[in-house]
Design a protein around this nucleic acid. Structure first.
Lengths: 251, 251
DNA sequence: GTGCGGCCTGACGTGGCGTCAGGGTCAAGG
DNA sequence: CCTTGACCCTGACGCCACGTCAGGCCGCAC
């Protein structure tokens, strides 16, 4: 098949196929003597995957990365696409619910505050966070359970969660400011409170998993930044305290 | 509120707010003496709508257009956003179903042909088509009914529909090639078959509605192009035949 | 008064194509 | 055999929605 036919079949422009060729994302497996691009069935398969991932918000660079991954089991792609689509379904449902809530509120003359509107929609930027979390945690059970649980949380639930987390952070800060070392009883107790909070609201988080999380607090810039804005040095402090607490429990 | 606070609340960057200000999409209603942008609650409302429409795929120019529409009843926006989100939900569901079908096929060792894959996904470019149809038909009952019905169609159904439409087109072509005028009995019979096909597969299409469709065949470049690729002059021929048929029925 | 974080305005860079310009290719009809 | 019109090629520039510095002005805490 030549470019025009492929473009018509896939619903893209010829220019798009040229572009994918030039950047090396999808080069046709053959050319005619005159230089015409010739696409083989395998090329169509690849194009299909490209378009799927593109639709799901991947950059073309990322698409190339996942498609050229040597562990290129085709079922991996299908499973990942399935997971991402389900996520998108959830997100769309949430937005739909938010709009319906707004309609209702407006109908009853109860104006929502701007905060309430942004809370669900943009607010804490669910899209990027979810993408990163998904990438990091793959399809672990914890991630699935967290998704399942949090999907039904109300605004009040989220407020309570935030307050609880703030309170735990305060305990860490207080311990640190008092001069107690990160593996002191006070710090470890705060870590334990944090672990239980996670288990209560998101997913069952045994000490070993919490220790892994603790390592991430200093390895991952995002988490580090979060803690460092609360108090300088807090990321390292919390990380150490969490791992110490996990070690204490396994004794 | 100043830019930083607004950006954090809405989950966008400061640069984005600067951009929206410069292009006139969202200018803060005030400035401090030092030139700091000051956002009022009304500005946040507008930002909220901007982000909604952006998320739904509108260009910033189009966002400005709908938001500055003088018929700026807030309920209009909510209703439109609601409709668009439901569409997106449908589309995501369809893609999810397609992926599941692929998984199943792969699991059972039945390889799908490339055509089958693209059929649902890209194929006839549902996104743009839907967007245009929605714009054109607003939220008419016909549109809603069509959506409702077609959402449950299987691949075999679509194949049958395509064959049926091809057959009807062939009747038009044959009539035209035979030299029969567009308001001849043969042409009008073909038109009637087309009308019944629409009613059977998409929505109840009475003669008047079909006449309106007929006018669109020559007014809308897309439909014109479709028919003209089958045979030159066919668009005008079909258009005339459809309207003649509608007139015949009302007698 | 001196940091230090936040704000300002240019100005250039980037990703994913759209859109000509200038020219070769190929199958059908005269 | 030749022409004609549809399709293909390769640059090269344009565009949108920002990202990313650079250079400099607030503002408030110590």
């Amino acid at each position: 098949m030549n470019v025009g036919e492929v473009a018509a079949l896939a619903g893209v422009t010829v220019r798009t196929l040229h572009h994918y060729d030039r950047i090396g994302l999808l080069s046709p497996s053959g050319r005619t003597a005159a230089g015409y691009r010739q696409y083989a069935p395998a090329d169509l398969d690849r194009l299909h995957r490209v378009l799927m991932y593109r639709e799901l918000g991947f950059s073309l660079e990322d698409v190339a990365a996942v498609l050229d991954d040597p562990d290129a089991d085709p079922t991996v792609h299908l499973r990942r696409q399935h997971a991402l689509l389900r996520e998108r379904l959830e997100r769309t449902r949430a937005m739909l619910a938010a709009v319906e809530k707004e309609m209702e509120a407006q109908h009853m003359g109860v104006p929502l505050t701007p905060e309430e509107k942004f809370e669900v929609f943009g607010g804490f930027d669910p899209d990027r966070y979810e993408a990163e979390a998904e990438e990091r945690w793959g399809d672990t059970d914890a991630w699935a359970e967290s998704k399942r649980r949090t999907s039904s949380y109300s605004k009040d639930d989220w407020l309570r969660i935030r307050d609880e987390q703030t309170a735990v952070d305060e305990r860490f800060v207080a311990a640190m400011r008092s001069g107690a070392p990160a593996d002191s009883e006070a710090a470890m107790d705060a870590a334990e409170a944090a672990r239980q909070s996670i288990s209560r609201w998101f997913y069952d988080c045994p000490p070993e998993m919490h220790a892994a999380l603790g390592r991430m607090y200093v390895e991952n810039e995002r988490f580090t930044a979060t803690y460092e804005t609360v108090a300088p040095g807090l990321a390292q402090y919390v990380s150490t305290a969490v791992q110490a607490n996990a070690a204490r429990q396994s004794d």
